[in-house]
């Protein structure tokens, strides 16, 4: 049933991808055509055929919008054709970003779960903490990130940890909100039943609240892991000349290397996809163990 559904999804998805690629090519040609004409004029070249100009437009060095095959070529060159230790390798930069993302995500998830436990078990915590937690997410992360990096750097902490903390800041929120809801979602009947057994709060937590909250955890983690990646990349922006996908994006924009930017964006997108897929995989394994109806 599920696998049949998944198979039937592939067709529509490929159709959308194909449409996007066509649009992308039209956009690339449209946006870069004028620049190409200007450069012919400056060089005094005349009588360029349409097909010649089209081919030139799609192989510019710094196009406004690079064509998909240019991004792919750049991506290929900086992943497969580079040693992973090279500063040019997107695998190297991707790993730097990924390690900060994972550390931040792990801390954020644990922190979020911990906060949710407190909030659910203590009415005062609920009233006093929840507004602050929500307020924390209204602060623009782009404004805070440089301060975190600078302040921590001043006290001698640099590299992985400051970036991970920005990831934590973004990823704990969906977890805490999801888990508060999850921990509160056991049915009244199930809680009554535990009361008739004279079960302790700890037993109620591990035998009822935790298993009930698991589906909420995985949903929150999918949002949280994507936010974590954004946090790590944002954390790399102010680092300047450092490593990581964020640093690549920044360097690319300094030197107008649009193809490099797009290749780094592609790496970030692939990372995000892989992270979400991993959480999804963990969810399916857990569901199978818990006998969730397929």
């Amino acid at each position: 049933m599920i696998s049949a559904q998944r198979q039937s999804n592939i067709g529509p998805i490929l159709a959308v991808v194909a449409a996007l690629i066509v649009l992308w090519y039209l956009g690339a040609v449209g946006m870069n055509w004028g620049i190409q004409s200007d450069s012919y004029q400056r060089a005094g070249t005349t009588g360029v055929s349409f097909s010649q100009q089209l081919s030139d437009v799609l192989s510019q060095e710094k196009p406004i919008l690079p064509a998909p095959h240019q991004v792919l070529a750049e991506f290929w060159k900086n992943t497969v054709q580079q040693a992973v230790t090279s500063k040019k390798s997107l695998v190297y930069h991707g790993w730097i970003t990924l390690s900060a993302t994972l550390l931040g995500f792990a801390i954020g998830t644990l922190f979020g779960i911990g906060l949710a436990v407190f909030i659910v078990h203590n009415a005062a915590m609920d009233r006093s903490l929840m507004p602050w937690i929500i307020a924390s997410q209204t602060v623009p992360i782009l404004a805070i990130a440089p301060m975190v990096i600078v302040v921590l750097n001043a006290v001698g902490i640099s590299g992985l940890v400051p970036k991970a903390l920005i990831s934590t800041y973004l990823s704990f929120f969906p977890v805490v909100v999801g888990m508060v809801t999850g921990f509160r979602s056991p049915e009244a009947l199930q809680l009554d039943l535990m009361r008739t057994y004279n079960a302790s709060r700890v037993q109620v937590f591990f035998k009822v609240r935790w298993p009930t909250a698991l589906p909420f955890l995985f949903t929150s983690m999918k949002v949280g892991v994507a936010a974590s990646l954004v946090g790590a990349i944002v954390g790399e922006l102010p680092a300047g000349g450092g490593s990581g996908i964020g640093a690549r994006l920044l360097a690319g924009s300094y030197y107008g290397q649009t193809i490099q930017i797009w290749a780094a964006l592609m790496a970030a997108a692939l990372l995000a996809g892989a992270l979400i897929a991993s959480v999804g995989f963990a969810e399916r394994v857990t569901n199978r163990l818990l006998g969730v109806r397929a």
């Binding site: 049915e187 009554d192 039943l193 008739t196 037993q203 035998k207 298993p211 818990l290 006998g291 969730v292």
Partner: peptide, 24 residues
């Protein structure tokens, strides 16, 4: 206590559901 609804825990097998009060 037996409630109007079975109130079984969906993530536990039948034997694990019966085991719940015994575990507690």
């Amino acid at each position: 206590y037996v409630f109007q609804a079975p109130a079984l825990f969906p993530w536990r097998t039948i034997e694990k559901n019966v085991a719940l009060p015994l575990e507690i």
